[in-house]
């Protein structure tokens, strides 16, 4: 079996894996980190989203052998170094009632953190009118940029409010 190394939420791990193991299964089944969720397991729901080498990724579509050496931050590790161990985006989700069952929430929070970085870097989106101008992060932009994370409870109104608040406060990450 191949040996892979991952840094997960600040801790280094080296382990032998079956070549078929996804990063999601490595995190959940081998390392016991159940923050990323297995929703659809086919890249359609976003509940397995983590930050991988600083960008939001779907871990269900990533083979562990292919991402050997990566640094992963899950929703469980986002709060590291923040007051009360709570990342400002997670805090905004709490205060804005941005979930009901909570299953999609770790993926939503990781996705929002990644999205704030992309906004800061000026990435365009599908609804950006002028590709050459600075992006105006209005609600249409935020909805489009979060469209890779489904919420079956339909907490989108709260999610949008939480994300809007993070953008307004400077998108601290």
């Amino acid at each position: 079996m191949p040996t892979v190394s991952f840094r997960v939420d600040g801790v280094d791990h080296t382990l032998d894996v079956d070549v078929r193991t996804t990063v999601l299964d490595l995190l959940r089944e081998r390392l016991g980190n159940t923050a990323p969720k297995k929703g659809c397991d086919h890249g359609q729901c976003g509940s397995c989203t983590v930050l991988l080498d600083g960008r939001r990724h779907l871990t269900c579509l990533a083979l562990a052998v292919s991402y050997d050496g990566a640094e992963v931050v899950t929703a469980a590790g986002l709060g590291e170094g923040h007051a009360d161990g709570l990342h400002p985006v997670a805090d905004a989700f709490l205060r804005n009632d941005a979930f009901q069952c909570g299953y999609c929430t770790p993926g939503q929070v990781c996705s929002a953190v990644g999205m704030l970085d992309e906004l800061r870097e000026g990435h365009p989106s599908h609804v950006t009118e002028d590709l050459d101008a600075e992006v105006d992060p209005d609600d249409d932009e935020l909805r489009e940029r979060m469209s890779g994370n489904l919420c079956r409870c339909g907490a989108y109104v709260g999610i949008l409010a939480a994300v809007r608040e993070c953008v307004a406060s400077g998108g601290e990450a």
């Binding site: 779907l58 996705s111 990644g114 999205m115 365009p124 989106s125 599908h126 590709l131 940029r145 890779g148």
Partner: peptide, 29 residues
């Protein structure tokens, strides 16, 4: 590729097609 300044300026159809596809997570992968 979608965010590349030359693509946005000289090949807008390409930038538009890229950002219309999949989700932000998938576009990173």
């Amino acid at each position: 590729l979608a965010a590349h300044p030359v693509v946005r300026r000289e090949f807008p159809a390409v930038a538009r097609a890229l950002v219309s596809a999949a989700s932000a997570q998938i576009r990173h992968q």
